[in-house]
Amino acid sequence: MVEEKLLPWALAGVTLGEEVLEIGPGFGATTKVLAGTVPRLTAVEVDPASAALLDRELGDRATIVTGDATDLQFPDESFDAVVCFTMLHHVPSPAAQDRLFAEACRVLRPGGTFAGSDSRYSHRFRLLHLGDTMVVVDPDALPDRLRRAGFTDPTVSSAGGSYRFRARKTGLS
């Protein structure tokens, strides 16, 4: 599903480049696919146990870092692309989501792309997240939030219960 549907749809028309950062890989379904398609992949995961498991599974195919995406420990302009898939709703507040967007912009090189996907709100989705953090990002509000974080040309499109987004960082180093 991830390799055949999610990533091709979420990344259609997106050039990732050489150095890619994935935010919030969780158990690594997308990370395992990305690791085979990009030259250098770094993934930052907030949960130490998940990060350790991914590190063991992926070995030298990716660099796995335990960390908080709202306070990334990478230098400015470190990556050609930043991606995240089905994880934004796990960020505990809109303010924290906005810090994540700002950090993604900060670590992205000029001309780079921030892209990903997540789920739209539904009662079924809510039931899947009982007892779990679920702060769904409104896809209609996302372009303005990405602009405030420093991105240009944000686009959001929906299909079924999901949406994908992409935005660029402009400017010179």
Rank of each mutant, 00 (worst) to 15 (best):
P39D: 02
R120Q: 12
L172T: 15
A104Q: 09
S162Y: 09
H129L: 14
S157T: 15
F85D: 02
L146P: 08
A104N: 05
V156T: 09
P154I: 11
G131F: 08
S119G: 03
I64S: 02
E57G: 07
L146R: 04
R109F: 05
Y121A: 05
A52Q: 13
A69T: 07
D55P: 05
H129G: 12
G28V: 08
S158Q: 15
L34D: 00
D140E: 14
P48E: 09
L130A: 07
D76L: 06
I64Q: 00
A115P: 05
F79K: 03
R166E: 08
A62D: 01
D60M: 03
K32F: 07
P139T: 06
T66Q: 12
D68W: 07
F114Y: 14
V136A: 02
S93Q: 12
A29Y: 11
T15A: 02
E19L: 02
V14I: 15
T170H: 06
F101I: 05
T31I: 04
C84K: 00
R109P: 11
R124T: 13
T113G: 03
H123N: 06
A96L: 14
V14E: 01
D98T: 10
R164P: 01
D71R: 15
S93T: 15
L34Q: 03
D47L: 05
L142Y: 01
S162D: 03
R40S: 12
L11I: 01
V82D: 06
S157L: 13
S93D: 09
G24S: 06
L108S: 06
R56D: 10
A62F: 00
V91D: 00
G67A: 13
C84A: 15
F85A: 09
D60H: 02
S50L: 15
V91A: 00
A62S: 06
T86I: 13
V38Q: 02
P92F: 11
A35R: 03
S78C: 09
M134G: 02
L128D: 05
T30G: 10
V38D: 05
A52S: 15
S50I: 02
L16A: 03
E22H: 06
G161H: 11
T37I: 11
L72W: 01
P143N: 06
V46Q: 01
A159G: 07
H123S: 12
D80N: 12
G112P: 02
G67V: 12
T66R: 05
R106A: 07
S119V: 04
Y163T: 08
A96F: 01
T37H: 10
F79L: 04
G13Y: 10
D132S: 05
A29I: 01
D140R: 14
G36L: 07
L130Y: 09
A102R: 09
L54H: 04
R168Y: 07
